[in-house]
Simulated assay, not measured.
Amino acid sequence: MTEGNFVDYVKIYVASGKGGRGSTHLHREKYIDKGGPDGGDGGRGGHVFIIGNKNLWTLYHLKFARHIKAGHGGDGSSSRSTGADGEDKYIEVPLGTVVRDKETNQVLFEITDDGEKKILVEGGKGGLGNWHFRSSTNQTPRYAQPGIPGQELDIILELKVLADVGLVGFPNAGKSTLLSVLTAAKPKIADYPFTTLKPNLGIVAYRDFQSFVIADIPGIIEGAAEGKGLGHYFLRHIERNSTLLFLVPADAEDIKKEYDVLLDELRRYNPEMMDKDRLIVVSKSDMLDDELKAELKEELDEAFKGIPYMFISSVAQQGLTELKDKLWKMLND
């Protein structure tokens, strides 16, 4: 999937169908010129549903669907015939989609399971035909109910990527390179900041045909929680990851400081992020000789008390098997 095709935020106007009118028909036959009422009911208006589809990864197919309207119910007719129900509309979304009311910004529901179906707006009920209003004192009612109008709603669909592990780091920390060597994903890689503008997903093949999903998130900068850089456009994708992998390059001026800035941005965006499992990975460690690595290890042992960390090199393929083992253990403990 190219970056231009990854859409994670759309606004849509949805409207259900109105119910059909009840009929005021009076029964007539060749030798019956004054039959009783036999007007049928109107059909119900169409509903608008949201349904989860595990084969979708983006909201791109809804990018230009600004208005989605269900069909109106048919009117009732003679011989107590009920009108046809209006056509229902189904909006398919990827798993992890949050549905909000645009006016109030309230979360209506989330779609997390394949085939999960929710009604967005219900169609109006059809009106009753005059047959329902006959009585001993009113044997030929010439009135029926109109159908109930449909409902309208402006909604926001917001995709939060479903992945087991989220890669967190400053721009150019080597996240896309790591994703490309751990998985079959082919993210754009270059030596300038913000090469990655959209989240990339990859499946890590593990032992015994097992696997887990890892997400490469665009680089975080200081102030991202307030919307600097790419701000809120990507921070929400980390919310669903159960494990956060903090990637800090070995040539960083202060590894502990970089980690603290990243952690603080996540905390300010959503304090619940602090409850997730964390693993710190020092990337580009092929630049370190044994002496430098030993010195750095002493510093990190003191700085990261109780937080696991490890050294890897994506280019030199060092420490990748150990990284997979560690992530698998963290995900399955």
Rank of each mutant, 00 (worst) to 15 (best):
Y13V: 10
S16F: 04
K18G: 07
K18C: 07
R21K: 15
S23E: 02
H25M: 11
R28Y: 14
Y31H: 14
G36S: 10
P37N: 03
G42S: 03
R44P: 07
G45P: 06
G46Y: 02
I51Q: 15
N53C: 14
L56P: 13
A65F: 00
H72Q: 05
G76H: 05
G76T: 08
S78C: 15
S79M: 05
R80D: 11
G83S: 07
G83Q: 07
E87N: 00
K89M: 11
I91P: 04
V93R: 11
L95M: 15
V99G: 05
V99C: 12
D101N: 15
K102T: 13
E110C: 08
I111L: 09
G115F: 01
G115R: 14
G126W: 01
R134P: 01
S135Q: 04
S136N: 10
N138H: 08
I148E: 13
I148K: 13
P149T: 07
G150K: 09
G150D: 03
Q151N: 14
D154L: 03
I155V: 14
L157V: 06
K160C: 10
G166Y: 06
V168Y: 03
F170M: 07
S180T: 12
I189L: 06
L197D: 07
P199R: 11
G202E: 02
A205F: 05
R207M: 00
V213F: 04
G219I: 06
E222G: 01
A224E: 02
E226C: 01
L230R: 02
E239R: 13
S242N: 07
S242W: 03
L245P: 02
P249D: 13
I255P: 07
K256W: 02
R268N: 14
Y269P: 03
R278I: 12
V281T: 14
V282W: 04
K284C: 07
S285F: 10
D286Y: 08
M287V: 14
L288A: 12
L288K: 12
L288S: 10
D289F: 05
D289G: 10
L296W: 05
E299M: 11
E302F: 12
A303I: 01
F304T: 02
K305D: 10
Y309D: 05
S314E: 04
A316F: 08
Q317G: 12
K326E: 12
K329P: 00
